[in-house]
């Protein structure tokens, strides 16, 4: 006789305990943008890390594609209160890009094609917490979602995950970015609901 035992199936966490305070779940992927979508063909795409001493580390699209990639599945949280669970991406970990970068800087200012900027502590980009992502849900990343490549820093509100990412400037002093100079929180931790500058 075959006995069926109820296996321990590792309860898939429902939405509630994965939703930061003040957020609601969405199934679609809203498009938010502070300006027109830049047209960045991969053959003209370049990504650069500039250190505080003036050194530049550059990658072409082909060079980025040749680097080892990861396929993170992450929850994302937009400051406009939507959250989306289990989004799947493909991209290069910032740990790979920073391998040969020598820096004593503590701050990063991320900049994008189209002029957008956002700031965060350098440590929030390292140790498996951030990627340059170029595929979403198995497809090339659409331009409206930041294609050809965007920053992905899912543990902070999604405005930190700069679309159309072009480079990172390492700084010894913090320099607030586009939304951080217009009333939004300098750090933006969704679990502490750091939406606005005075939160």
């Amino acid at each position: 006789m075959t006995t069926f035992t109820r296996g321990f199936r590792g309860r898939r966490r429902g939405g509630d305990d994965r939703l930061p305070p003040g957020q609601y779940l969405t199934e679609d992927f809203p498009v938010l943008s502070a300006g027109p979508t830049p047209d960045v063909p991969p053959d003209r795409w370049e990504f650069a890390i500039h250190t505080e001493t003036g050194q530049a580390h550059r990658w072409t699209w082909q060079e980025l594609m040749a680097l080892p990639y990861e396929t993170p599945t992450v929850d994302i949280h937009c400051v406009t209160t939507w959250s989306k669970l289990d989004t799947t991406w493909q991209g290069v970990s910032l740990d790979v890009l920073f391998e040969d970068v020598e820096t004593a800087a503590e701050y990063a200012l991320v900049h994008s094609y189209g002029g957008y900027t956002t700031n965060l502590p350098l440590e929030d980009l390292l140790d498996g917490k951030a990627w340059i992502a170029y595929r979403y849900e198995g497809e090339e990343l659409a331009p409206v979602h930041g294609g050809p490549a965007r920053l992905l820093v899912p543990h902070l509100y999604f405005w930190k995950s700069a679309k159309w990412v072009r480079g990172i400037r390492l700084l010894t002093e913090d320099w607030p970015g586009f939304w951080e100079t217009a009333g939004y929180h300098n750090y933006g931790d969704p679990w502490r609901e750091q939406r606005y500058a005075d939160d």
Binding site: L32, A34, G35, P36, W179, G183, Y184, R195, Y196
Partner: peptide, 26 residues
């Protein structure tokens, strides 16, 4: 369709005005 309103110049597309509204401040 952004965390705030971003008004751009129709000529050069640079940002002219930004307005962010929180529950108790602008």
């Amino acid at each position: 369709r952004a965390p705030g309103l971003v008004a751009r110049c129709p000529g050069c597309e640079e940002v002219v005005l930004r307005l962010v509204r929180s529950p108790d401040a602008a």
